[in-house]
Design a protein around this nucleic acid. Structure first.
Length: 287
DNA sequence: CATTTCACCTGGTGGC
DNA sequence: TGCCACCAGGTGAAAT
């Protein structure tokens, strides 16, 4: 489910509900799959922490956590401004992960792998049927704060953007999906931005002109920003922190529209396989 | 090295 | 109704 716009939507929603709250108790399933840090270690690490803020980096949701101990840190510690995060909880949603803010007595969905009980009485739940998601806890002694490996698509400039692709020899779609180059772009927004830019997914990055890379830079940011405004794409089961669906799927021009007429020229949308992923494009509008 | 393929999982859909 | 093939928002390890 989750690419940059969906992850951004979830992170904003979670932040709104849990910023300033405190984790009273954390429960984790004991399956091997969705844990980058062993569940027992996460449970111990999270209990008692204040949640300072929640934000997105690439496709990761990062919880900035306060220092442990000092019950109800109201007195002495409250005066120091901008407390440094002492730990981080990092959530990657994989394909089917959901992060939901619930009331504690609401029914627990199948495939719930984490439940964080909060001081406010709310409960934060991580649900992930396919278990491609990842949960990680980091103690921040000195450094080691999480950073996404690739460039942020929404803030990168046109020149830097073009430079990312200059001397590579892979299809542009494969490059867009590579998180080490750009972080946050996935299958939907790769296809949609290439359509907006009029570029075929198989074109090799080192054969694209500066003008084409400029178009792609503009198209990508435009597509991502509009998707964020619409709360992301709910293709099958994606929902935000409140369980609400997004609406950008109604704006898709090519993604999962195989055989349907191109919204611009009417030519049937074509589907190929590229980099192991279903890839959709208009053979007339994209060259 | 850089690039490509495949395994990791569950569930929904559509054909027969 | 059941069975089966195929598809799905991602990514790291293995192969080329």
């Amino acid at each position: 489910m989750p690419e940059l716009p969906e992850v951004e939507t979830v992170a904003r929603g979670v932040d709104k509900h849990v910023r300033g709250d405190r984790i009273v108790h954390a429960w984790f399933s004991n399956l091997p799959q969705p844990f980058k840090t062993p569940p027992s270690q996460q449970a111990k690490g999270l209990a008692g922490r204040a949640i300072l803020a929640v934000h997105r980096t690439g496709k990761h949701i990062v919880f900035e956590l306060g220092a442990l101990g000092k019950e109800s840190g109201r007195s002495a510690t409250s005066t120091k401004k901008g407390a440094e995060p002492a730990g981080q909880w990092i959530v990657h949603l994989g394909m089917t992960g959901r992060l939901l803010v619930s009331v504690p007595d609401s029914p627990v969905a199948p495939h719930t792998h984490a439940r964080l009980e909060l001081a406010s009485g709310r409960e934060l739940r991580f649900v992930d049927p396919r278990r491609f998601g990842r949960l990680e806890f980091r103690e921040l002694g000195g450094g080691e704060a999480f950073t996404a490996p690739g460039a942020e698509p929404l803030t990168i400039g046109a020149g830097e953007f073009a430079a990312l692709f200059r001397r590579r020899h892979l299809p542009i779609k494969a490059a867009l999906l590579n998180q080490g180059i750009l972080s946050g772009v996935g299958n939907i927004y790769a296809d949609e931005s290439l359509f907006q830019a009029g570029i075929r997914p198989r074109r090799r990055t080192d054969r694209l002109t500066i003008a084409e890379l400029d178009r792609l830079h503009t198209a990508l940011r435009q597509v991502l920003n509009q998707a964020i405004r619409l709360g992301g794409s709910s293709v099958s089961d994606y929902v935000d922190a409140d369980g609400a669906r997004g609406f950008f799927q109604l704006e898709h021009c090519v993604y999962q529209r195989t055989g349907e007429p191109c919204r611009r020229c009417g030519t049937p949308v074509r589907r190929i396989e590229l980099a192991g992923r279903g890839t959709h494009y208009c053979p007339k509008c994209q060259r």
